[in-house]
Amino acid sequence: MRIVTLNLNGLRSATSKGFFDWLPRQEADVICVQELKAQQGDIHGIMRAPNGYTGYFHCAEKKGYSGVGLYTRRSPDQIMEGTGIPEIDAEGRYLRADFGNLSIISLYLPSGSSGEHRQAAKFFFMEHFFPLLQSLAGCGREVLLCGDWNIAHKEIDLKNWRSNQKNSGFLPEERAWLSTVFDELKLVDVFRKINPAPDQYTWWSNRGQAWAKNVGWRIDYQIATPGLAGKATVASIYKDERFSDHAPLIIDYDFNP
């Protein structure tokens, strides 16, 4: 089972950069995407149903903003849109597909980098989403949460960690929250389980020469229940082409739901 996750930084933008030419070649079973920046009426043709896949989307109420999606090769048993928390669901940040005993979720945490009001929204999300994470961790199903969490967990997960300790995405409170997800809920950072190496990033600022110099952040994750995480075999970050300011995170699992 191959799972891909990517923050598109705009579905239409990624389409114009060749994302849907690349996608079929990956032979992925499920592709989780975030930051659609599109409404349902904007999503048509190859964006809705790329070759061999069916797309499902949870869009934000605000135009040109947020939104998450899933592309699947086989039909899910059910699709669950939203968390049930109105303030979160208005921004289109959670979409779940069930296949047998497996749940795959496309998830997009808020960024707090644009100002204090957005950091407050991020803290609201973290507080109110945590009980749902608890229930997912203890539900008896295998669960995989894929997406842009907008938090670099440890110093190894961003190049300039010293200068970012007071910046959104690497605040002590954010990192501690993510530690609780791993340590108390026993959910697993699958990429880091397989690859302990430094300089592995999934997002680069458009400022300076961050991409060319690999001055990045690892803020995109596949986070799984322990049983599924133990089935992961290969993890990679695809950087040969650019469809976004993020890179696709690809993980293979020896698992058949």
Results as ranks from 00 to 15, higher is better:
78 Q>Y: 12
83 T>R: 02
107 L>R: 01
79 I>D: 06
37 K>P: 05
100 G>T: 09
21 D>I: 09
56 Y>T: 02
95 L>F: 00
26 Q>E: 15
33 V>T: 11
113 S>P: 00
52 G>I: 13
79 I>Y: 04
70 L>W: 08
92 G>L: 02
42 D>A: 05
122 K>T: 11
86 P>A: 06
80 M>E: 13
120 A>I: 15
124 F>E: 08
18 G>K: 04
57 F>C: 03
121 A>P: 00
54 T>F: 06
37 K>I: 08
58 H>S: 10
66 S>V: 01
98 D>C: 13
33 V>H: 03
23 L>A: 13
98 D>R: 14
14 A>W: 05
35 E>Y: 13
74 R>E: 15
127 E>I: 01
48 R>Q: 12
109 L>M: 15
57 F>S: 05
34 Q>I: 11
9 N>H: 11
124 F>Q: 08
46 I>F: 04
25 R>M: 12
128 H>C: 00
112 G>Y: 01
15 T>A: 15
74 R>T: 13
27 E>W: 01
116 E>L: 13
116 E>S: 11
14 A>T: 09
94 Y>F: 15
102 L>W: 10
123 F>Q: 10
89 D>M: 05
69 G>T: 08
50 P>E: 10
108 Y>A: 07
11 L>C: 07
56 Y>A: 04
57 F>N: 03
71 Y>D: 00
92 G>F: 00
31 I>Q: 04
81 E>W: 00
98 D>G: 06
129 F>C: 10
77 D>E: 14
110 P>K: 00
111 S>A: 15
52 G>F: 14
81 E>M: 12
61 E>P: 01
78 Q>S: 13
